[in-house]
Structure formats: C-alpha cells, structure tokens
Design a protein around this nucleic acid. Structure first.
Length: 586
RNA sequence: GCCCCUGUAGCUCAGCGGAUAGAGCAGGAGCCUUCUAAGCUCUUGGCCGCAGGUUCGAGUCCUGCCAGGGGCACCA
C-alpha cells in the first residue's frame, strides 16, 4: 500500500495523517481528515514525525489524551511504512518510519520530474499582477520586491498545478505623459523612431523641470494630455514610442534578473482605458455610486476617514478624470469577467492594503468578484537601508535596479575569480547566477510582509543561509556525479545504513510539503527554509558518508549516488521555483 | 482620532495552538596529503515588548497598554 487513490507520492505527513484518521475511525469511531491528524516533523532524536491529534480529541471523545493516543497506536495499520510508535508526554504519538519504506520512497523519486509533488486536485485560474514599473522612469529598488516575489509565485503556483496568467500593470497613462511627449518633441523625436533614451530618469527629470519652470511648456503639456486621452493619432504614435523605449529598459532588467515577464504580459493602465467609462456606467446602473464633493464615488462599508466619515473610492474625479481606483475596478472586472480568472493576486507594497481592501469590497458589491472568486493583496514590506529608513542613495535618490544588479554580479565575479577554476566565459555565467541569486534569495528568504533591511554585506554573503550555499551544495553533487562516471539508474536500491543517509532521504521527501506550504500561503520563504535545511542535511551526509572512495562497497556507492542525484534534482528544482539558477559547477 | 502591520539571541531573521523556542551573522575553540573549506564540528548568547485572559497546553489565539512603521477624498 502506498497511499490511496491517485496520490502516487505526495506528502508523507498527509500519508501518515490518513493512517491516523483510519486508526481513529477503527478504534474510537471518530472521523477526522488527514490534516486534522496534526502530523508534524519532529525534532526529537529517533523520531521522524509526531501526531498531536490525541490531546485535542480527548475532550470530544471523553477519554484521557494518552488513552486516545494509545488507541491510535493500537489501531494503526501501517506496518509497511512505520517502524516504531510510542505514546509520549501528555499524548504525543511519536512515529519513526521504516527504513525500507523510506528507502523505497526515495528511490521512487529518481526519474520523477516532479520529485513527488502531486499537482493540486483543484487547479485555480490565477491572474497575477506584479512588477508594475512606470514608463519613462528607470526601475529602482522599489520595484525589486514586487518583481522578484511575483515571479517566484508565478513559478510556484504553476508548478503546484494552477493556471497562472501574469500581467504587468505598467504605469503608462496619465497626466505626466503630456509633459513627457512635449519634451520628446522638443528633443526632435518623430513617430518613426531612430531615437533612444539613454537615461530615462534624466529624461523624466528634464521634462519635469521644464514643466515647473516654463508656463508655455506647461500649457502645451496640458493640451497634449487632452490630445492623448482624446485619441489623437500623432500623439498616440509618440506615446507608443515612449512605451516601447521603456519596455526595452524593462526587458533589459527582466533579462538580468531572469524574470519571465515579456512585453506580451504588459497590461498597462492604458489597456484598461477603454473599459473605464463602461465600468463607471455599470457601477452607476447598479446604484453603487454617489456624487460627493463633485466626485463620483463608491462607498464600501467599513471604511472611514480622519473625521470618521465614510471613505470613498473615487471612481471619477471632480475634474472628470479617472483615478487608480477606477482602473483597479476595471482590472478586476476584466480578469474575472472577460478572462474567466478565479483568483486575483496583486503583488504590491503593504501601504496599499486599504486601497485594495476597498477595491475588493467594491468589486464584490458590483459582482466583479463572487463567492467563486478570491482576490488577494500580496503585500510586501519596504526595503530599508541600514539606518532603518527606506533605502536611498547617498544623494537621496532612489537606487537604480540596474546598478544594484551590476554591483551584485561584479562582487560575485571577484569571489568567483578567486575560487573557480572554470574558464572566463563560464566564470562570468557563474558570477551572474551567484550575484543575481544572492539578490533574489536575500529578498525571498524573508517573510514578504515584513520590511527588510538591505545590507550589501548580507546580500552578498557567501556563508550561511544564502543562495550560494544552495548553489554550492548543488555543485558538489554534480562534481561527485561527474566523477563517478555513471548515471544512477532508476531501479537502484537505496540503502540507509547511517543516520546521515536516513536524514537525507527524509529531507528529500519533504519537497511536496514545502511546495504546498509556500504556494498556499504565497510565501516563497517557506520554500527557501526547506531548501536550506535540505542543503545542510546533504552537507552533513557529504561530510560523513564517502561516496567514491575506493573502500566503499559498490551497492553503498550506488545508493549514495542516488541520494546525491536526488539532492541535486530537488535543489535545482527548488531554486528554479524561486527563479534562481543552479549552475553545475562553481 | 480611527484602522492596518511589526516587536523573538549583540545583529538579521525562522518558528504550522504542542514537548527543552531554532537558524545565519558576529564572538570563542577546533578541522583541508581524503568526492569543491563558498564547507564541517563544538561553543557562548533568550523575563519571545509589558500586563491580563482563553486553553490540558500560548512566541503563536483574545483584550488592554507601551514602542516603531504605514494608511486614512480626487497622485498612482
């Protein structure tokens, strides 16, 4: 018996939970789900998993917790996978898996592309909003977290078995474009191209400066906004050039970061422009709007302003223009209505929490979100400098993403040059993998909702819980595998003769639980934590269990090579889910 | 004033209502004629902000307080 139904591998905890649930049904006539069996990995010596269900069930069943635990143990039909059980403390059931089952389960992972992770039985259709840079502005550290976290979630959710459509809510519309286009014309641009902007920030700042200093220019700019929004073709042509120019910059950054977003994923503010009037008309038709201080508003219940009065979501401003609330409502309506998505995710900083709460509330009032939909603001904290304040350059400006990434790669290159014996090209590739990986891992390994302090020393750290540690462990795997001159065969028997081997097999089987935890909580750091544990477990194995030494028996050597190959496969897959490269050699 | 988030080792952080709260960094002591020392082993270091409550059991849930951050009508 290896689990029930379609579940071929899955999570060991769920498997054990199912056995415990059966035992409770058999022994005490109690019905619980496998999850309610509260199976947790144990940190105690000689114990692999513990079941904590007995204590909470005691009252319901009317028996002392230890007696419930005793009943679980006595009725457990698990001779195939459990070696020993014991009732301990107030009513814990300590479980040690059988070596044979563990070995068999580990061996079965070889050649399994999904490494034991079953696709979710109930796939959802996600629309995932992330990155969201602004046209005509260089990407800065403020965009880093949304981009990295969003991309990791895209990979994680897809691997978990969901359908995910990313959409990049680029800031490509609004009043600033009047001045930007006028400035473009002053610079001699034509709609036909042949121009480029080497310094997007400089371009924006120059336009801004002229707007502030020159009333004539400011006036032209305002007229240009009207022309743009009125659909003037010549103006639109220039606007498109500006968007293209910026898009080139975004793609450069995405390329450096290894982000999967493409120009096809761009659903900028302008995209929703044609939907805005209709959305407002729809809200009005449903009687959800009220004019307040000249603005058309929706008042979702439960929100109040400084004076304790109802807080509006402004759908049409007093001057007739649209705010971001309008766009966000149209966005929700579009992705659920026209694209049939079931779950909307927005990877946007936590300061926007109230805004999204209001947009979701209004979307439910309008029926854009129903009981069949979920909408979630995937908030994240700010990146702080070492002074605990929002990170800035010494000059007080925002830190450019390109420069930050180049610094990270340069720094990695120095270390690579000191330690690597690879040729120059390969070293450059490794430096990119290590440098970019370090930036991403430093971000992803923290709980995304909290602010995190950015320090170069930690971001570029080569020790401890870092991406390099994982990459290094993986490279060691590949090194051994290459030296072995063989490829572990799928039917190789896995032998767990030492605690280190056993611990490694156990760790390898925990990928499904890690993926599930990370995907359901939209929390990549949970996967990071697991991968780091796996890597430390492997390193202990690597340290204590010779693989290729001459005195190692052939069957032990073959088994250890399987464990090594599996470790590499899990690390590589895990890093891929985080969007981090796993070079075969460092 | 109201709402949201955060407070865990010197620092940066994990911690799923469960047993003696874990990592990394920094500090201390060791380990390379041996598969990658970007590594390993050992070690020092905790009134989990404070006070109550719920629970068989609370860092975790509830209430109050303190401290820090953020948000609170036409910028997104």
């Amino acid at each position: 018996m290896t689990g029930g139904g379609a579940v071929a591998y899955g999570d060991v905890g769920i498997e054990l939970g199912a056995r415990v649930a059966a035992a409770l049904r058999r022994g005490l006539g109690v019905e619980i789900t496998p999850a309610e069996a509260v199976i947790r990995p144990s940190t105690r010596d000689g114990v692999d998993y513990q079941c904590n269900a007995a204590m909470s069930l005691a009252k319901k069943v009317g028996k002392p917790p230890r007696e419930v635990a005793r009943s679980i143990v006595d009725n457990l039909d698990s001779a195939d996978l459990v070696a020993t059980t014991e009732v301990a403390g107030p009513g814990f059931v300590n479980i040690r898996l059988s070596d044979a089952w563990l070995a068999g389960r580990a061996a079965a992972l070889l050649g399994d592309d999904r490494l034991g992770v079953d696709p979710v039985p109930d796939p959802r259709r996600y629309a995932l909003d992330y990155s969201s840079p602004n046209v005509a502005k260089e990407m800065h550290v403020g965009h880093l977290r949304s981009t990295i976290i969003g991309d990791a979630l895209l990979r994680l959710l897809r691997f978990a078995g969901h359908e995910v459509t990313p959409h990049n809510h680029v800031g490509d519309w609004g009043t600033p474009f009047g001045m930007l286009i006028e400035h473009l014309l002053d610079e001699g641009w034509t709609p036909d191209g042949g121009h480029s902007i080497s310094d997007l920030n400089g371009f924006y700042q120059a336009a801004r400066a002229k707007f502030d200093a020159d009333p004539v220019f400011a006036d032209r700019s305002r007229k240009r906004v009207v022309a743009l929004q009125g659909g003037d073709e010549a103006t639109l042509a220039l606007w498109r050039r500006l968007v293209e120019e910026s898009s080139r910059h975004f793609q450069k950054v995405y390329g450096m970061l290894g982000i999967e977003l493409t120009p096809e994923d761009m659903y900028g503010e302008s995209f929703y422009n044609p939907y805005l009037d209709d959305t407002i008309a729809d809200l009005e038709a449903k009687g959800l709007t009220r004019v307040s201080d000249g603005a058309v508003c929706v008042f979702p219940p439960g929100f109040s302003n400084r004076e304790g009065e109802p807080l509006p979501l402004i759908v049409r401003k007093g001057d007739g223009g649209y705010g971001y609330a309008t766009t966000d409502l149209a966005t929700a309506r579009y992705w659920t209505g026209e694209r049939g998505m079931t779950d909307l995710l927005y990877v946007v900083g936590t300061p926007q929490a109230q805004h999204f709460a209001m947009v979701f509330a209004a979307s439910r009032m309008a029926g854009y979100l129903t009981d069949d939909h979920t909408a979630e603001h995937i908030g994240f904290g700010s990146i702080l400098g070492e002074d605990g304040k929002t990170i800035r350059t010494r000059a007080g400006g925002s830190v450019k993403l390109v420069e930050l990434l180049e610094d990270a790669v340069d720094n990695a290159a120095k270390t690579v040059a000191e330690r690597s014996s690879l040729d120059a090209d390969a070293q450059a590739a490794v430096a990119r993998a290590v440098g970019i990986g370090a930036v991403k891992y430093a971000d992803l390994s923290n709980d995304r909702e909290k602010d995190y302090v950015f320090t170069w020393s930690r971001m570029l750290a080569k020790e401890g819980n870092t991406s390099v540690y994982l990459q290094y462990a993986n490279a060691r795997c590949h090194s051994v595998l290459a030296k072995s001159g063989t490829t572990p065969a799928a039917d190789t028997e896995v032998l767990l003769g030492s605690p280190a081997e056993r611990a490694l097999a156990l760790a390898l089987l925990r990928l499904p639980a890690a993926v599930e935890a990370a995907a359901t909580a939209y929390a990549p750091h949970k996967l990071c934590g697991y991968l780091y544990e796996l890597a430390t477990t492997f390193t202990a194995f690597y340290d204590g269990c010779p693989i290729l030494k001459p005195d190692v028996p052939a069957e032990v050597r073959a088994s250890r090579l399987v464990l090594t190959a599996l470790t590499s496969a899990v690390l590589t897959r895990g890093l891929e889910l985080l969007g981090i490269e796993a070079p075969r050699e460092l």
